[in-house]
Amino acid sequence: MTTLDITSPAARPAVPGPEPKKRVSGRQMVANALTLAWRNIAQLKHSPEKLLDVTLMPIVFLLLFLYVFGGAVAGSTHSYLQVLLPGLVAQMTMFATMGLGTALNEDIHKGVFDRFRSLPIGRSSPLIGAVLGDTARFLTVIVVLTGFGSALGFRFHTNVLAVLAAFGLAYVFYLAVCWISVLIGMIAPSPETVQGIAFIFIMPLVFGSSILVPNTKTFPGWLQAWVKVNPITHLADAVRGLTVGGPTSTHVLYTLAWAAGIVLVTFPIAVRMYSRRV
């Protein structure tokens, strides 16, 4: 058995090659994150079925909500579509993040993250890479929603810049919510439980909002109070304002503030959990 004197500087056996670096540089961390984002894109190339949920969900929700609520809420499906579609952009932005936590939890269980954690790369790079790589899911949602929505009769009433700003805002919020999904992926005991935990957070946010019913005056007082602070309300209303017209600036600011707040809270905890997870 060996005795190891941990107080004295170690005699280092000669190691060929350059002396190991003391820390991972910022530039290297960015490069690592981009490589890991590429990993997600490459996975989609071999398993395009991973995008099936974000392709079908917008279509199913659009058809269901449009024909179930259209007459009751807006008098006709045609006028409801103009209100519903921006709301669904907000809803699907939330739903599309859920796959990420599951995928990361699978990475942990399969041992893929063990290898990453034993590599000299930035601690947060695998998580940042996974979030960036997930952009494909967001883009799919937007393309399917606007494409299918237009086929049903949805029309933009603003200009191109405003529409791009709407999607840009949704994307910023998407990236922020991804970190909630990442955090759940780090905490959940198994991939199967990730969705269950995520739903508990996502359901009250998504449906306790103005996405389905823009006129929230009929809600009871406590629900109106919740709807007013709910970031999904602000995101949906901001997207409405930027795509079909209406008040915008306050909702944009609220959404951005919420996005910043979510990242500030979840990012450090997620990275910490990831470093500790064994």
Binding site: P13, P20, K22, R39, Q43, H46, K110, V112, P120
Partner: peptide, 29 residues
Amino acid sequence: CGYDVVHEAVQVRQLIALTGQYASVDDEL
């Protein structure tokens, strides 16, 4: 190689490679 696995983990990671109990390759690549 003389580097402490706790306090000099960054250096250690540059010198080692790990092959886990469950083959830790990415199935989908």
